[in-house]
Design a protein around this nucleic acid. Structure first.
Length: 970
DNA sequence: CAGTGAGCGAGCTTCCGCTTGACTT
């Protein structure tokens, strides 16, 4: 009997289809994509590791050829598929009918290499008829569609893996940029910027209760005074909180409103007009992924990933159709099921006369699946599932069931009522009050589903605002005329649901990724949740500003939309993948694309400037917000203060900033020193937590906390103990010995000589005798004296000895010339000589510092710079720009190509001086004075108005900055 | 964002879209 292997994407789908197809068919799943570009260095096959493009996984030099690998976690499934292919007579690739699905089919073909005939089939619904029909109408793989997918994949990789490193260098390590996440982040940032610019405006009006004869009262609001309208929120300018110039309206103060209310008390009112307008309301389309997530949030209070988790379970249990879809289409079986259920449960009059269909919702919908709906040809009611499923799953099913059924129900019908009441105040002023009502005559679909509410019956009542029957000229009595204050509100922050909605509206992201986008921007520290709201962090502000200013095109809201147009061209055969990517990455003519942009921006972007965030409300105060290594902080001149985590960007006002600067943050008073009476304060500083004796920023003494101490629980006693450091231990050979806590841990110091201590507590306990013994021994550098010698030694007859050593970054191998750090899985203990040899020979590298020393001796970098500068004839301009910063880098790049992987070079001062542009004015003057003019720091610092110690610290920072700038340029 | 003492093997981080368990807390 012939056997056909059908491969789909999802195991749950395989199970269902297997049932429909029966004998002669084996249905198995690929579990999504089986191959992809390598994620990181560890996934790059050895033979490609040396290639310049391997980091990207795309050979940008040869037609952007992608390097595909089977991800480790997919290997077993691929092996399983391979063995099934061997037993089959026919292979049918039945992955989804969209760009990604086509690509999966193609990858399956490439990787499984079946020796039997292969067909491609597609279907959009999992029903017996649809499957049977699909299998009768196979087609071929659409190569153009596969190309479009590859183009999409490559573009995302190039974008993500080229732009993220710019952020690492200019903002903070481990940040990320991408076509989707960077736009999502920008949306949050721009909304928050609006909130930060926003100034609230306020106004007053009057709300009264009115009554006809003995009937029920109803509320109405003052809208007009002496023929002129009263202000509403829309009349205010959000930037100033004042009325817009164009608004010809009253803005009542509290006092005015109160006086008017008193003057109106007891006055007769009359109905000026009473209008009634009928309305109808149509049900919402059946769920797609984004709307399910939105309603899961609004009605059930579940976030996107929790909603999706429940939906996944329902799908696997066969309760609902596929939950990652962008199509609102119901299959015929679903339509019939929904309609017969409406008839049975609500009666014929609640059924829409004809089957309802809905327009596709999102721009780039690919509609490979049905809408999300209860599975099967007759829907099980939520009630009938009570014993079977529970919790989130039941609630999500209930939601899906209601929405699906409602989508085939009749329109709701009702009337909107508008009433105007007129009355004259005792002081002669004329007023108009307005009341509106809503009556629902026929609820239609609202019986089953009210958007945003969990309980349609209760919500229906809320929707009705009843007014008594009123007609023009009727007299009404006013009572309870209350002045009421109002204030304009800033635009609301995004929630998970509204951000997904906004992204979908712009065609950004796919149903399978909405939930993970939210995860990504939170994991990267771009946003935090406050209740339902997503609040962008200061890091998001810095990142977004960098991208907007330097990579503006990439974070345009319609970048994705334009990409989709191009991909459509590729899918349609009108454009090819390689030229498209060449245009994006290299430019129309080389040099205008992303690659060049990144290279030039790495030099141009001043990290200090990027770290400084514009806050409109701080303009003119001299206060700046910066994002530093230790989080966001405020600065004004010398003063600094941490920004508390719980303070959202829009809450930072000039007053708040003053308050924070006036009270250095992170400090905790512990009490007073009994000896001196001075306060003892625990603080968080640049180098970690420390305690200080004395007030404010001029402490008498400071001491770092030791490992094991906690800033939050530190006692006064311990603080006083820490403040005894450095401790006098005794005198040896006429020199004083002190116990210090330093950068590299605890140590003893005698004159210019020192010895490390093993343990921080020894600082307090080490005796004169122990000190004597230590100084009698030679100095041992390294980690607690443990490993200056090798842990293990491998001898070879045909090569030099290899040592296993322990270092700062863990165990490593070295033969004196090259070194190789061991990876996690390479156990140091059980390492055999052969393994050691192969690791060192494959990965061994010359240490950086050695290369640096030789380079400095040979003036290599200076020579390179000089040579390249001569070849530069194009650049003109001021004296400063005549020393081009960029061209030497280009020269270095060329050398790189010729010489394989040159070691990094420690730049000479000549090379570094080119980058003084990254420094502040003071820093520049300081470093020039010291390095060019040969002044001593101690002498020049006072001249520049700096404390000597401060200047020394500054020089360290300057060195770091210049080196970084030089590296970025090279 | 305090102020001090030395001298040492780096290498990795990251994208978007398809899909599920297998892990650990």
């Amino acid at each position: 009997m012939p056997k056909t292997l059908v491969i789909v994407e999802s195991p749950a789908k395989a199970k269902t289809i297997g049932k429909y197809l029966g004998k002669g068919y084996v249905v198995e799943s690929s579990i999504g994509h089986i191959r992809d570009l390598p994620r990181s260095a560890s996934e790059i096959p050895e033979r490609y590791k040396g290639e310049a493009w391997a980091r990207l996984g795309i050979n940008v030099e040869e037609d952007f050829r992608p390097l595909y690998i089977v991800a480790p976690e997919k290997r077993s499934q691929v092996a399983k598929l391979k063995s099934l292919v061997k037993d089959a007579d026919l292979v049918v690739l039945a992955t989804d009918d969209d760009r990604e699905g086509e690509s999966i089919a193609w990858h399956l073909l490439q990787e499984l290499k079946p020796k039997v005939p292969v067909k491609r089939m597609v279907f959009h619904e999992i029903t017996k008829e649809a499957i049977a029909s699909a299998i009768q109408h196979p087609r071929n793989i659409d190569e153009n569609l596969v190309e479009a997918q590859e183009a999409r994949r490559a573009l995302d990789r190039l974008y993500g893996y080229e732009v993220s490193p710019v952020l690492w260098k200019k903002v903070a390590p481990k940040l990320s940029a991408g076509r989707v996440q960077s736009v999502a982040t920008r949306m949050l940032v721009e909304r928050e910027r609006e909130r930060m610019r926003f100034v609230s405006g306020s106004w007053w009006d009057i709300e009264g209760r009115f009554q006809v004869a003995e009937g029920e009262g109803f509320p109405a609001t003052l809208i007009e005074l002496d023929g002129k309208k009263l202000a509403q929120g829309k009349d205010f300018d959000p930037a100033s909180g004042q009325l817009k110039k164009s608004a010809d309206v009253w803005q009542l103060s509290e006092q005015q409103a109160r006086e008017l209310a008193e003057s109106l008390a007891g006055q007769p009112f009359r109905v000026l007009s009473a209008e009634e307008k009928p309305f109808t309301q149509r049900p919402y389309a059946p769920f797609i992924t984004s709307t399910l997530q939105q309603e899961g949030g609004r009605k059930l209070g579940m976030n996107a990933s929790r909603t999706m988790r429940a939906a996944q379970k329902l799908y696997e249990g066969g309760y609902i159709t596929y939950m990652r879809t962008d199509s609102t289409t119901l299959s015929k079986e679903a339509m019939d099921a929904a309609r017969s259920q409406v008839r049975a449960m609500y009666g014929e009059q609640y059924l829409h006369p004809t089957p309802r269909t809905y327009e596709k919702k999102s721009k780039n919908a690919q509609e490979a699946h049905e809408a999300i709906r209860p599975a099967g040809s007759s829907f099980r009611t939520p009630e009938s599932l009570r014993g079977e499923i529970s919790g989130d799953e039941w609630r999500v099913y209930d939601l899906i069931w209601k929405r699906t059924v409602a989508s085939q129900m009749a329109d709701a019908r009702g009337r909107r009522l508008q009433v105007r009441l007129g009355g004259r105040a005792q002081d002669g002023r004329d007023t108009v009050f307005a009341a509106s009502g809503k009556a629902i005559d026929f609820p239609g679909f609202l019986r089953a589903y009210v958007e945003g509410s969990d309980d349609p019956e209760a919500a229906l009542e809320d929707r009705e605002v009843l007014l008594p029957a009123l007609k023009s000229g009727d007299g009404v009595t006013a009572r309870d005329l209350k002045p009421l204050g109002h204030a304009t509100q800033p635009p609301a922050r995004f929630t998970e649901a509204s951000l997904v909605q906004a992204l979908e509206g712009a065609g950004i992201g796919r149903p399978s990724t909405y939930a993970s986008i939210l995860g990504t921007i939170q994991d990267r520290g771009y946003a935090v949740k406050r209740g339902q709201a997503l609040v962008p962090t200061w890091t998001a502000f810095a990142t977004s500003a960098l991208l907007e200013h330097h990579f503006g095109r990439l974070v345009d809201y319609d970048f994705t939309a334009r990409m989709e147009e191009d991909l459509d061209d590729i899918a349609g055969g009108r454009q090819k993948r390689a030229p498209y990517l060449r245009g994006f990455y290299l430019g129309e003519q080389e040099g205008l694309g992303l690659k060049n942009l990144v290279e030039t921006r790495l030099e141009a972007i001043d990290p200090r400037e990027i770290a400084t965030i514009e806050v409109p409300k701080l303009a003119g105060s001299g206060i700046e917000v910066r994002v530093g290594r230790y989080g966001p902080y405020l600065t004004r001149g010398e003063a600094r203060a941490n920004l508390p985590e719980e303070l959202t960007p829009d809450e930072l006002t000039a007053e708040k900033a003053e308050e924070l600067l006036g009270r250095p943050s992170g400090e905790r008073p512990l009490g007073n020193d009994p000896e001196t009476g001075l306060p003892v304060i625990a603080r968080a500083g640049r180098f970690g937590p420390y305690v200080q004796l004395g007030e404010g920023n001029t402490p008498v003494k400071t001491s770092s906390l030791l490992p094991g101490d906690d800033l939050n629980t530190l006692s006064l006693e311990r603080a006083l103990e820490l403040l005894t450091l450095p401790r006098f231990v005794g005198t040896l050979e006429g020199e004083e010995v002190w116990a210090h806590n330093g950068r590299y841990g605890p140590y003893l110091k005698r004159g210019s000589d020192s010895r490390s201590l093993n343990n921080h507590e020894e600082l307090f306990s080490v005796t004169h005798e122990q000190a004597e013994q230590l100084f009698a021994q030679p100095r041992v550098f390294g980690r607690r004296g443990a490993a200056s010698g090798p842990l293990k030694r491998f001898e070879f007859s045909d090569r030099t000895t290899i040592d296993l050593k322990s270092g700062r970054f863990g165990p490593y191998l070295t033969d004196g010339t090259v070194n190789a750090t061991l990876r996690k899985d390479e156990g140091g203990e059980n390492l055999t000589p052969d393994e050691a040899r192969s690791i060192l020979e494959e990965r061994g590298k010359e240490p950086k510092s050695k290369a640096g020393k030789t380079a400095r001796g040979g003036k290599a970098s200076a020579a390179k710079g000089g040579k390249a500068a001569k070849t530069t004839t194009k650049k003109t301009g001021t004296a400063e720009t005549a020393k081009p910063a960029r061209k030497p880098a280009a020269g270095a790049a060329k050398i790189k190509k010729g010489k394989k992987a040159p070691a990094k070079v420690t730049p000479s001062w000549d090379a570094l001086r080119r980058h003084v542009g990254v420094l502040s004015e003071t820093e520049r003057r300081l470093v020039i004075a010291v390095r060019d003019e040969g002044h001593k720091v101690d002498e020049i610092a006072p001249v520049l108005g700096l404390e000597v110690n401060k200047a020394k610290g500054m020089l360290l920072q300057i060195g770091r900055k210049l080196n970084q700038a030089a590296r970025a340029g090279a």
